[in-house]
Amino acid sequence: MIKIANYQLWVHDQDAALEFYTGKLGFEVRSDVTMPEMGDFRWLTVGPAGQPDLNIVLMAIPGEPVMDAGTARETLSLVTKGFAGTVFLVTEDLDASYKELTARGVEFSEEPTEYPYGLDSAFRDPSGNNFRLTQPYAMP
């Protein structure tokens, strides 16, 4: 059986991302390792409590030789605009989760709204990555 273990998000600043994901979303740090032998490359992962087999890699946008300057600028631009993909989160109680996250400082771009599939809302992380927080009518 194939399972998803890690999902990578590009972030502008790993420390700011770490604060957002742990302090505001309540995620756990799974690993935070800096490797001097690889130019101080930092492997930083977080994940939701209660879901230990899924990690989100908070990856700094690299420079040479991994990415040329033009690609790095394009990646930064796409992330900032929220067009580098969307992470879909589910909750059993969107109203309670919305209130809790708002109290922690998460700024929603879309308040909870009813759709045919359930209640849905949206926010972005400090780098611009897009998130949907949904309470589906039939939880997966």
Score class of each variant (00 low, 15 high):
residue 1 M to P: 10
residue 1 M to G: 15
residue 1 M to H: 10
residue 3 K to A: 08
residue 3 K to N: 03
residue 6 N to S: 04
residue 6 N to L: 11
residue 6 N to I: 12
residue 7 Y to W: 02
residue 7 Y to C: 08
residue 10 W to L: 06
residue 10 W to P: 04
residue 13 D to E: 09
residue 16 A to Y: 00
residue 21 Y to H: 14
residue 21 Y to C: 14
residue 23 G to K: 13
residue 23 G to D: 11
residue 25 L to E: 06
residue 25 L to N: 06
residue 26 G to T: 13
residue 27 F to S: 04
residue 30 R to A: 03
residue 31 S to F: 12
residue 31 S to H: 07
residue 32 D to F: 11
residue 33 V to D: 08
residue 34 T to D: 00
residue 35 M to L: 15
residue 36 P to R: 06
residue 36 P to I: 05
residue 36 P to C: 04
residue 37 E to M: 03
residue 37 E to C: 00
residue 38 M to W: 02
residue 38 M to C: 01
residue 39 G to C: 04
residue 40 D to I: 00
residue 40 D to M: 00
residue 42 R to S: 01
residue 44 L to D: 09
residue 44 L to Q: 12
residue 45 T to H: 12
residue 45 T to E: 15
residue 45 T to G: 11
residue 46 V to E: 08
residue 47 G to L: 08
residue 48 P to G: 11
residue 50 G to V: 01
residue 51 Q to F: 03
residue 52 P to E: 12
residue 53 D to L: 06
residue 54 L to C: 04
residue 56 I to M: 08
residue 57 V to L: 04
residue 57 V to C: 02
residue 61 I to C: 09
residue 62 P to M: 10
residue 64 E to G: 01
residue 64 E to D: 15
residue 64 E to N: 15
residue 64 E to I: 02
residue 66 V to P: 04
residue 68 D to E: 15
residue 71 T to S: 15
residue 76 L to A: 13
residue 77 S to Y: 05
residue 77 S to K: 13
residue 77 S to H: 14
residue 82 G to L: 09
residue 83 F to S: 07
residue 83 F to C: 05
residue 87 V to Y: 00
residue 88 F to D: 05
residue 89 L to D: 06
residue 89 L to G: 03
residue 90 V to S: 13
residue 91 T to F: 12
residue 91 T to Q: 11
residue 93 D to W: 07
residue 93 D to T: 13
residue 96 A to C: 00
residue 96 A to L: 00
residue 96 A to R: 01
residue 97 S to T: 13
residue 97 S to D: 14
residue 98 Y to A: 00
residue 98 Y to M: 05
residue 99 K to R: 14
residue 102 T to W: 05
residue 103 A to H: 01
residue 103 A to S: 07
residue 104 R to C: 07
residue 104 R to S: 13
residue 106 V to A: 02
residue 110 E to G: 03
residue 111 E to Y: 03
residue 112 P to H: 12
residue 112 P to A: 10
residue 114 E to A: 11
residue 117 Y to R: 05
residue 119 L to E: 09
residue 119 L to V: 06
residue 120 D to C: 07
residue 120 D to G: 05
residue 120 D to I: 08
residue 121 S to N: 08
residue 122 A to V: 10
residue 123 F to R: 09
residue 123 F to N: 02
residue 123 F to I: 11
residue 123 F to K: 03
residue 124 R to S: 13
residue 125 D to T: 12
residue 125 D to H: 10
residue 126 P to M: 05
residue 127 S to P: 02
residue 129 N to D: 05
residue 130 N to D: 14
residue 130 N to A: 14
residue 130 N to R: 13
residue 133 L to G: 08
residue 133 L to I: 10
residue 135 Q to F: 04
residue 136 P to E: 01
residue 139 M to G: 06
